[in-house]
Write a protein that binds this DNA or RNA. Sequence first.
DNA 1: AACGTAGACCAACAGGTGTTGACAGTCCAG
DNA 2: CTGGACTGTCAACACCTGTTGGTCTACGTT
Lengths: 193, 193
Amino acid sequence: MTGTTENQQAARRSDATRATILDAARERFLADGYEKATIRAIARDAKIDPSMVMRYYGNKAGLFAAAVAIDPGLPGLSLEPREEIGRTLVRHFLTLWEENGELTALMRVGVTDPAAADRMQSVLREQMIPLARRLGHEPEQAQARAALCVSTVLGLALTRYVLRFPASVALGREEIVDWLGPTVQRYLTAPTP
Amino acid sequence: MTGTTENQQAARRSDATRATILDAARERFLADGYEKATIRAIARDAKIDPSMVMRYYGNKAGLFAAAVAIDPGLPGLSLEPREEIGRTLVRHFLTLWEENGELTALMRVGVTDPAAADRMQSVLREQMIPLARRLGHEPEQAQARAALCVSTVLGLALTRYVLRFPASVALGREEIVDWLGPTVQRYLTAPTP
DNA sequence: AACGTAGACCAACAGGTGTTGACAGTCCAG
DNA sequence: CTGGACTGTCAACACCTGTTGGTCTACGTT
């Protein structure tokens, strides 16, 4: 872990430190949000000097950007049977949120910071709207339907993972799929009401 | 406005100032969130001294509490015809959010601050769950169904009023009612899937 | 008219923030 | 073995934060 010099990207000796910082940053941003998660606290967690954070990530914004770099990766959903796409989508988002705590951090910040909000929106723009379009809707319809789907899953994420309402946390995984799946399905495939 | 002394609650001479502060606070909290909305900035907006804010509201938390005191006031919804309750509920929440910017502020803060999060949850506890129960569900069912409804409307509020996703902002009021109404209706009245 | 009190202002405090620069130790290439 | 680049440490800067106490003004009551 400390001697190899010929990697694809010139493995630096400081990679371990970099990773430690990033882990601590993710944890802090997730727990406290952007403003309250101070560089000093993150550095303390990582047991390094605050100035190292600056050296490696430029500034606080850069650190945050590095900490929440994530790929939503909606898989080739057009392959799914059309009647199952709602449930599949909901299931996919559930695992996504449960595996990546960064998403909670991103939401905490996005609510105040336009740049982070835009990052969240990109999922809608680049993945959900094209998906709705692939399902045969004209542009406006695709926009509206995709917005409704995103609002559905983000609403659940908000009450369950961010605000942690007990009633929402108590819901079982498959219970959620059973309720929200048909909803998303309807938003995507039902005729306009 | 400046001479009456015998009101129900001893109208103070400073009431105008108090109101000015509260207005400025609401605006700032709404725009910036809790941490970024500084007392100094609020005082500057209200064109008074920062120390007055402390004098009248104790501290920053007290000011925030006073700024977002709001009553969701779900009306006597049990009077509504059972088949229309979904649409009525959605319509009610839409006007609520559009008339009270404080709700956006509350959400911005609740995402980071547990106390504010709890305040949001109280709507669920004290209004939605009883409503679901009044519709004839046993306790657990009522909890789950109410959580789904809250998640639905908060999801819309999040994408439309807080994050301001264009695709969500573009939705028309009745369009939202047409899509979300049946969803909420199903969460409240459909048999468990 | 005189007094007590509440409203408003000012200056300052103590602490925390992101960020910077100079210095010492460590590793590898020449 | 010697240079130079990289990793890490320490102390400090300039600024902004919430909050406090003292002081002057103006009103309402007696």
